[in-house]
Each structure stands twice: as structure tokens, then as C-alpha cells.
């Protein structure tokens, strides 16, 4: 997985509350058995005026001048609520989004982001709102190690993140590899567990 250390880029505002995973990628857009190419279906119902023909909706933020291929999204509260579909995160990733800034996130979506090298960055709602309502594209610099977002006027906004999530993103770690290092502990646990609840093993 790609490491996430520092990112400078345009932040595209999509400042609506409760943007759900069905909106990020409609179910019809996720009939693939690999992760690649899902970016095309990202926000399909909003991004295209004719979904089947892939005709762009010129009003959608990522189709507007200066926001196309923005690597940062400025989102509203509870972004990514809804389903567990990791396709939502893969779609963002495939499109080129590396960071989503929002006042809060759906829990499964947030952990899916971390597993895929996308930084789910929580800022207070007024701060996100201020950035999202700017009348021209805003370029932000995110420094994960320092836990800051530098905004165009030079101010550095601090943010918090769980240490484990930070480490995973900074190092681009593979969670399975880390857990498998604990295999003896898992096997030990399983032995005792099996003795207590034998009916769970058949």
C-alpha cells in the first residue's frame, strides 16, 4: 500500500450531510471482481447527467474547472455512512482522492479508508464549512506526521487521528502481515477457547 506522508493539492467541496456509500458508488457500478476501474463509477448518479452514456453533469464539483482530479474532498458530517462496501473507498482511490476532510465519518468507511491509504481527516465543522464555501479552488497541504492542514492563508489547522491509524498510513502497512506475526498468540487463545466452547468447533 502507498505510504501517506504529505499531500498538497486542491480540495473539492462536496459539503452535504450524510453522503452515503450508495452515493459514492451506486451498487450497479460495483460489479467487478477486482479493484481497478471503479473510479469511473464514483458519484455516478451525481457526476453524470446520463449515467449509462457517461455524459458529464457540468454542475458537479469534480467536473468543474480547477476541481477535476482534486486529490482532496471537503465533505459534510457523517460522510460515508451506510454500507460496508469498500468499493466506495476503492472508487475514491482509483479516481485519485487521497484524503477526505469531514466533521465526521461513517465508522466502517473510516476504517476502510485507513486500510487503503486514504486519510479520513476530521476537522471541526466550522473549519470545513469555511474551506468548502470559498469561491475559488483551495490548495491545502496536509502533513500527517505533524497532524496539520495548511490552508491558503498560511494557517495550520491541527487534527487528531488514532495512533494505530496514523502508523498504518504513514508506513503503508499491511494489517494481515502485522497480525500474522501474532499467530502463536492467536493459536494459544484458540486452544483455550476451544476447550471452553467445544460446540463452536466442528
Amino acid at each position: 500500500m502507498d505510504k501517506f506522508t504529505r499531500l498538497t493539492g486542491v480540495a473539492a467541496p462536496l459539503f452535504r450531510a450524510n453522503v452515503d456509500t450508495d452515493a459514492i458508488i451506486p451498487s450497479r457500478e460495483m460489479k467487478r471482481v477486482s479493484k481497478e476501474g471503479l473510479g469511473e463509477g464514483m458519484f455516478a448518479d451525481w457526476r453524470y447527467s446520463d449515467v449509462a452514456a457517461r455524459v458529464e453533469n457540468p454542475d458537479f464539483v469534480l467536473n468543474r474547472l480547477g476541481y477535476r482530479k482534486a486529490p482532496i474532498l471537503l465533505a459534510g458530517p457523517n460522510f460515508g455512512c451506510g454500507s460496508s462496501r469498500e468499493h466506495a473507498v476503492w472508487a475514491l482511490q482509483d479516481y485519485g482522492i487521497r484524503c477526505v476532510i469531514a466533521p465526521s465519518f461513517g465508522a466502517i468507511f473510516q476504517s476502510n479508508c485507513v486500510r487503503n491509504g486514504i486519510l479520513p481527516l476530521v476537522l471541526p465543522e466550522p473549519a470545513v464549512a469555511a474551506l468548502a464555501t470559498a469561491d475559488r479552488p483551495q490548495t491545502l497541504t496536509i502533513d500527517l506526521a505533524a497532524q496539520t492542514v495548511r490552508v491558503p492563508d498560511g494557517t495550520e489547522l491541527p487534527f487528531t487521528i488514532a495512533p494505530a491509524d496514523k502508523e498504518m498510513l504513514l508506513e503503508g502497512l499491511d494489517a494481515i502481515g502485522i497480525t500474522l506475526k501474532r499467530l502463536p498468540a492467536i493459536q494459544d487463545f484458540e486452544g483455550g477457547y476451544r476447550a471452553r466452547y467445544p460446540w463452536l468447533f466442528f
Binding site: 460496508s84 469498500e86 468499493h87 476504517s111 476502510n112 487503503n116 494489517a175 494481515i176
Partner: peptide, 9 residues
Amino acid sequence: GIGTSDVEH
């Protein structure tokens, strides 16, 4: 519910 990375995990 879990995402696919966690399914693999």
C-alpha cells in the same frame, strides 16, 4: 459489517 480488506484479514 466489515470492509473487504477486513474480510481478507
